[in-house]
Amino acid sequence: MTVPSGRSPALRRAVAALVWLSALGPIGWLVWLAVSGGLGANPIESLQHRTGHYALRLLAFSLAISPLRALTRWGWLVPHRRTLGLAAFGWAITHLLVYVGLDLALDFSQFLEDVIKRRYITVGMLAIALLTPLAITSTQGWIKKLGGKRWNRLHRLVYPAMIAAVAHYLWAVKKDITLPVLYFVIVAVLMGARVLLRRQARQRAHAVTTSAAEASSTR
């Protein structure tokens, strides 16, 4: 397989446009639906479902960046990971606000009862709780403060967060589990890709050090 060099500015611009469109495009779409009546007979439910979908989708996109970079060696993809991750967090918070603010109309005792008693809401809150420190530490300042190694370790929380988010979706739907299962497959593939790529990188590093050692011993 030949991979485009990725140096083309047109390609970079196109990817950046797609990233921002997937992150913020839904705002315009929701406004349009609200104005045109496209949210249907139960607009609160529609908003709730849509915002949840946006959050999940963006989270999957952000997880796809690292394997994609490893495959293509396009280093410039990396900053997009932050954009996508932050957008996912923003939609997850919007999803929560729609639920508490509109669906429950700020009935906090019902909210507490739901978080404790309904497992799909418990894991949904867990997903948001796991994503929160990642959103906070997404700045350059925090990367410096924590150091790359610790920062990377912390940000591996995105995997349990994604699993919790998909479990939330799976347990929330009534019967048709096609999409939740599809998301589980996507997470499994992305996590699998990550493990594989790490192993490859380690082997490559190993090969380099051994060949270097051999080279030095034969000298």
Binding site: A41, N42, I44, E45, L102, D103, A105, Q110, E113, D114, R118, Y120, W171, A172
Partner: peptide
């Protein structure tokens, strides 16, 4: 098991 049946949203209304 997954939600309360104490309240309902009447289609077209905001508060349950």
């Amino acid at each position: 098991p997954r939600w309360t049946q104490a309240k309902e949203r009447r289609i077209g209304e905001f508060l349950r």
